[in-house]
C-alpha cells in the first residue's frame, strides 16, 4: 500500500536533503580548511533562525530577503569568532578547538534560552500553506524554494572557491598550510575568512528553513548530527560531495521513515553512513577533494 507514496516520499526527501546539504556545506568548508569539527554549527544555525525570525516579526522582513542581511552579518560573526575565540585557544591542538566550539555551543544555546526563553516560535508567512500540486503530493512552495536555494548556494560557493583569488588562497591553505604561508598567504586571515563563509552558509540555510520549521534554543541539535554525517559521507571538504550526500540522506531518511516507521527509520541515515565509511572511507567524492 505504500507503493503510491514512493514518489512523493522521494520528492520530499530531496527537499529535506537540500537543507541538510546547505547546513553541511558550511561545515565541510570549515572542516576541509581548518580540520576542525565545529560543534557550534548547530547553535549558529539556531542563532540564525532566531535572527531571521525577529527580522520577520519585528521588522516585517521576509526570510528570503533576510538572506541579504544575515549572510554578511553571520560572515562577520564567524570571522570574529574564529579570530578572537577559536584561534587563540588552538595552541596546535585540534582537540582543544573541538572543545572550544563545544563551549561556544553551550554559551550560545543557553544565552538564547536566557534571552528568548524556550518558547517554540515560528512564523506564519503568507506562503506557509501555499503548495504546488504535483498530482501525487502537494509540495509547499517554501520547500521548493529551499531546494533550489540550496542548490544555488552550493553552486555559488563552488564558484567562489574555484574562480576567485580568495577561493584559491583558501584551497592553498587547505592543501598545504605552511607552503601557503611561505608564498605570502595570511593563513590566520584565511582561516577566519573560511569560518566566516561557513557561518554565512548557515545563515542562508536558516533563512530557507524558517518558513517550514520552528525555532527553540535546542533546535540546532535536530540538524547537527545529520550535518556531521553529511560532511563525512560526501568526503570531507568536498562541496559536490556534501550536496549529493545531503540529498541522498534526505531521501534515505524519507524512505526509511516510510518503510520502517519514523522512529526506527532514524537508523537509516546512520547505517548508510557506517557502511559507507567502512567500505569507501574517502566518502562519495573524497578522491576529488
Amino acid at each position: 500500500m505504500l507503493g503510491g507514496l514512493l514518489v512523493p516520499a522521494v520528492i520530499n526527501g530531496l527537499a529535506l536533503g537540500a537543507i541538510y546539504a546547505l547546513t553541511a556545506l558550511g561545515l565541510t568548508l570549515i572542516y576541509g580548511v581548518l580540520h576542525i569539527i565545529n560543534f557550534a554549527h548547530g547553535s549558529l544555525l539556531m542563532l540564525a533562525l532566531y535572527a531571521a525570525l525577529f527580522l520577520y516579526t519585528l521588522g516585517g522582513v521576509d526570510p528570503y530577503v533576510a538572506i541579504l542581511v544575515l549572510m554578511p552579518a553571520f560572515f562577520a560573526a564567524g570571522y570574529v569568532l574564529q579570530r578572537l575565540v577559536i584561534q587563540p585557544a588552538w595552541h596546535g591542538r585540534d582537540e582543544n578547538v573541538l572543545l572550544v566550539t563545544l563551549g561556544l555551543a553551550i554559551v550560545i544555546d543557553n544565552l538564547a534560552l536566557w534571552l528568548w526563553t524556550s518558547t517554540t516560535r515560528s512564523i506564519d508567512s503568507r506562503y506557509a500553506f501555499e503548495v504546488v500540486d504535483l498530482g501525487v503530493a502537494f509540495i509547499p512552495i517554501a520547500k521548493l524554494v529551499g531546494f533550489f536555494g540550496a542548490l544555488a548556494f552550493g553552486a555559488l560557493l563552488w564558484a567562489l572557491m574555484t574562480f576567485t583569488d580568495l577561493g584559491k588562497a583558501i584551497r592553498a591553505v587547505a592543501r598545504e598550510r605552511e607552503g601557503a604561508r611561505l608564498v605570502g598567504v595570511r593563513v590566520e586571515h584565511i582561516y577566519a575568512m573560511t569560518f566566516g563563509i561557513g557561518t554565512a552558509m548557515v545563515a542562508a540555510a536558516a533563512c530557507l528553513l524558517l518558513p517550514t520549521f520552528y525555532v527553540t534554543p535546542q533546535v540546532g541539535y535536530a540538524f547537527v548530527l545529520v550535518a556531521f554525517t553529511t560532511v563525512v559521507l560526501g568526503g570531507m571538504g568536498s562541496f559536490p560531495g556534501a550536496l549529493f550526500a545531503g540529498l541522498l540522506l534526505g531521501v534515505v531518511e524519507a524512505l526509511c521513515g516510510l518503510y520502517l516507521g519514523e522512529s526506527l527509520g532514524q537508523i537509516g541515515i546512520f547505517v548508510v553512513f557506517i557502511l559507507m565509511v567502512l567500505f569507501r572511507p574517502t566518502g562519495l567524492f573524497g578522491a576529488r577533494a
Binding site: 563551549g103 555551543a105 553551550i106 554559551v107 544555546d109 543557553n110 544565552l111 538564547a112 534560552l113 524556550s118
Partner: peptide, 10 residues
Amino acid sequence: PGLNLVLYGL
C-alpha cells in the same frame, strides 16, 4: 535559567 550554563561555557 541558562545563565549558569553560559558562565560555565565561558
